[in-house]
Design a protein around this nucleic acid. Structure first.
Length: 806
DNA sequence: TAATTCGCTAGACCGA
DNA sequence: TCGGTCTAGCGAA
């Protein structure tokens, strides 16, 4: 017997290519001892599932010719899916599959799973988990290494990627850089060990770490060859999808240079992803840190107000990184004064970009493994893609047919049907003491599991025969057995997460492996939190109005029920929102009574569900709405626990579209109020702030209001202050992109508020409208809070008389 | 290519 | 110039 060559390596990415016979062939990149190597899986062909009633379809299909060229299917298998017979129809290429799909539809077939990307299809079917270490046998054939046998290594070593980040600085003479004309001035390339700067500026020669080249073309070649020598698994950028890669590509082409950045000197490709592009490298994972930050924000893993690199670095790492503007870069470049600052800036851009990804790498990696995506795909993934990937894997494992994406008419119909969400109880306004906050752990996922909510378990609206079924408060019935498709997935996610959390709790926090545990449970949390949302997403393959409706209906039931039970047990319930209950512990009752109450509730809940005590608070405040006839405001409150930790929810303090001065003052007022329960101090705080504003001594940075520009400036029906400020800035030559967050200040010059709004950078220190900041920022932020303690606006006017209360 | 609903508030806009 | 209505943004869960 011939001994086949063996190899071990980490699976980095799966892709496919058209070979010389126009066949679609799966290729996989492995990090082996030798380096990044490409292997092939030539046996795996594209396929779809077809179904047709009452017809001997198999032999007919085999003879059928498709398309203008008249090709035929490669082979046909017969398979049971979701308990029904299907034909598994294989094709030579993805291209032929697409042509045949349309023809099959026209000739009366129902077709399924025809739009699963081929590489993802392979990862699902093969069960190969990315970034895992494999052992495999292969044969070399026509210079191509074909894998014959593959299995995960018994003992896995940790995947430690070869990683680097880069960042460009470009020339922009009085306008936005144009890659056809304006050169790249500097490139920073940063690995975990060191950073190198590439430039053409002779004067930068003496600065450490700088390589100077005769011209831009030589600089780019120098950078590209150093990059290639690094032999990377991952290349990181900050917004490289939209800027660095397209710019670099264009410059290389203009200078007649090949941008050899990917595997075997391939060029990056710009792939369309919706309205935006993604820059893809062959074999090497381009991880865009900006996209990653967006992903993490969407899933609540980070909370950032602005997403430019400076703000992110400063927020995440308490860095003190200063932005050097395009104008300043030009000045430095032309005058050669401050070159060191520019070099430092460029280097830090690359270093912080790398640091962001290093920080969140364990999380990205875990997500990638769970959903079997490459890092390139994971860092750009949406909630629906993540859940879809998971359901796809489970479908393959259980031989369940995957539902097709809805057609646009169906999507429209779904959108017309609104869905009722969580229940929010109107709070009892005022200051409360001795509060216990209870919440249901992972409420929606646990309801789904607890009541077997899944499309395959749905038995329609409840009727006389619904005995023995789980009937939701909205009347939707679900069978209790067998366990539904969604349920088995969510149950296992919940169980895995709680095991990981328990393990993490016990683990040594200094051990680096503990960080992995945490990342793992976070990855699961992200998935669990998105599960409900996508069920109600009109475009989702597994959209299920019935399941979504039943989940929220039970959610409302449990929260309401807990309110009633708590009241019966002698507590007063001051607030409740979706999955939480705020109990005031009356005189004569203790925290121990709360614990007993929670135990009693838990005893009656389905096993997957659990009510937890979030914390005890010594004081809390709820306020009346501005529109007073509406009663007390929901979703805004402040609490202080027995360690004097303040929790402010929903108030201006937590909103980015309020000025620092208003937020600081509000926080100080709340703190004084909750710590001592005495309003005296608060009055003083507000008076001082008003006095400072009137003196004109409040610094610019405390006056900035941040707002996102969510559409093109000419697309606004109503021109608010931020739009007005942005328009003025654009007229002065500033570039403002859709989606960017801008900071503006209300100045003294102009009539309406919008007239007076100017971008921060165009406002001189001291030029602000004190009246605006007093009456539209500070007072609104504090007055409704102070009103609850009997203080009104007159009490706060500077030099105003002491409140009658004192 | 795409997670949801519930809720608050500011400021422009518009007609009397 | 007033007050109601609408647009817009952001946060809670």
């Amino acid at each position: 017997m011939i001994q086949m060559p063996k190899e071990t390596g980490f699976l980095i990415e799966v892709d496919y290519r058209q070979n010389e016979n126009d066949e679609s062939v799966i290729t996989a990149f492995f990090r082996t001892k030798t380096g990044l190597e490409q292997f092939f899986f030539p046996e795996f062909a594209p396929y779809l599932f077809a179904e047709k009633e009452n017809a001997k379809t198999k032999t007919g299909l085999e003879k059928e010719s498709f398309g203008e060229e008249g090709f035929s299917v490669r082979k046909i298998g017969e398979i049971q899916k979701s308990g029904k017979p299907f034909l598994k129809v294989f094709f030579k290429s993805t291209k032929e599959l697409v042509i045949a799909r349309d023809q099959l539809k026209k000739s009366g077939f129902s077709v399924f799973e025809f739009d699963i990307p081929f590489a993802k299809r392979f990862l699902v079917d093969s069960g190969l988990e990315p970034y895992t270490e494999f052992e495999f046998e292969f044969e070399e054939k026509n210079g191509q290494k074909n894998i014959l046998k593959i299995a995960p290594q018994k003992t896995q070593s940790v995947f430690e990627p070869r990683i680097a980040a880069f960042d460009l600085e470009t020339y922009s003479p009085g306008r936005f850089s144009n890659p056809q004309k304006d050169p790249i001035l500097m490139i920073a390339l940063s690995t975990p060990k060191s950073s190198t700067i590439y430039t053409t500026k002779k004067a930068a020669e003496k600065i450490e770490g700088v390589k100077v080249f005769a011209a831009e073309k030589e600089m780019l070649s120098g950078f590209l060859s150093d990059l290639a020598a690094l032999d990377l698994d991952i290349l990181v950028s900050y917004n490289g999808d939209a800027f660095d890669f397209p710019y670099l590509l264009e410059r290389c082409h203009t200078l007649k240079l090949k941008a050899e950045m990917g595997f075997e000197k391939s060029e990056p490709s710009l792939k369309r992803r919706g309205l935006e592009n993604a820059a893809k490298l062959k074999g090497i994972q381009h991880v865009d840190a900006y996209q990653t930050i967006n992903l993490l924000s969407r899933f609540g893993a980070v909370n950032l107000v602005k997403k430019d690199l400076e703000s992110v670095a400063n927020d995440l790492f308490s860095a003190n990184k200063k932005k050097i503007t395009a104008v300043e870069i030009n000045q430095i470049w032309d005058s050669e004064e401050g070159l060191e600052d520019l070099v430092k800036y460029n280097r830090e851009d690359a270093e912080y970009t790398l640091r962001i990804i290093t920080e969140y790498f364990p999380l990205l990696l875990e997500l990638s493994k769970i959903i079997r995506f490459s890092l390139f795909d994971t860092c750009r993934a949406s909630a629906s893609q993540i859940i879809e990937a998971l359901l796809l894997i489970k479908s393959a494992e259980t031989s369940t047919v995957v539902p097709n994406k809805p057609e646009s008419g169906e999507v429209q119909a779904r959108l017309l049907q609104s869905m009722v969400g969580g229940y929010v109880k109107e709070p009892v306004p005022g200051l409360h003491e001795n509060i216990a906050v209870l919440d249901f752990r992972s409420l929606y996922p646990s309801i789904l599991v607890g009541h077997n909510i899944s499309p395959d378990a749905y038995r329609g609206k409840a009727n006389k025969e619904s005995k023995g079924l789980n009937v939701s408060p909205d009347g939707d019935a679900f069978t209790k057995k067998p366990e539904g498709f969604f349920v088995s997935i969510v149950r296992s996610l919940l169980e895995r997460r709680s095991a990981l959390k328990a393990e993490y709790k016990k683990a040594d926090k200094k051990d680096p492996a503990t960080k992995l545990l945490f990342a793992r449970q976070w990855a699961l949390k992200i998935i669990l939190n998105s599960f409900y949302g996508v069920l109600a997403l009109a475009q989702f393959r597994w959209y299920s109005r019935e399941c979504a409706r039943a989940i929220t209906a039970w959610g409302r039931y449990y929260v309401n029920h807990t309110v009633e039970e708590a009241q019966k047990a002698g507590f007063s319930v001051v607030y409740a929102d979706t999955d939480s209950n705020f109990l005031v512990i009356p005189k004569g009752k203790t925290q121990e009574d709360v614990k007993q109450f929670v135990e009693k509730v838990n005893a009656k809940l389905p096993e997957a569900m659990e009510l937890e005590i979030e914390d005890f608070y010594k004081r809390g405040i709820f306020v009346t709405k501005k529109d007073a006839k509406g009663g007390a405001a929901k979703k805004r409150y402040a609490l202080m626990n027995y360690s004097n930790q303040l929790k402010i929810v929903g108030f201006e303090y937590v909103r980015r579209d309020w000025s620092g001065i208003a937020k600081k003052t509000q926080k100080a007022v709340i703190e004084a109020l909750l710590a001592e329960g005495d309003p005296q101090k608060s009055i003083g705080i507000v008076k001082e702030t008003i006095a400072a504003l009137k003196r004109g001594s409040v610094p610019k940075k405390d006056l900035v209001i941040l707002t996102q520009v969510k559409r093109k400036l000419d697309k606004y029906d109503s021109v608010g202050p931020h739009v007005a400020a942005a328009k003025k800035a654009v007229a002065r030559g500033k570039e403002i992109e859709v989606g960017s967050v801008i900071g503006f200040i209300i100045t003294k010059n102009g009539k309406s508020i919008s007239d007076r709004a100017e971008l921060e950078e165009f406002v001189k220190e001291g030029n602000y409208d004190a009246e605006y900041y007093i009456h539209h920022q500070v007072l609104p932020a504090v007055i409704r809070i102070l009103n609850e303690l009997g203080i009104n606006e007159e009490d706060l006017q500077q030099g105003g008389k002491q409140s009658r209360l004192f």
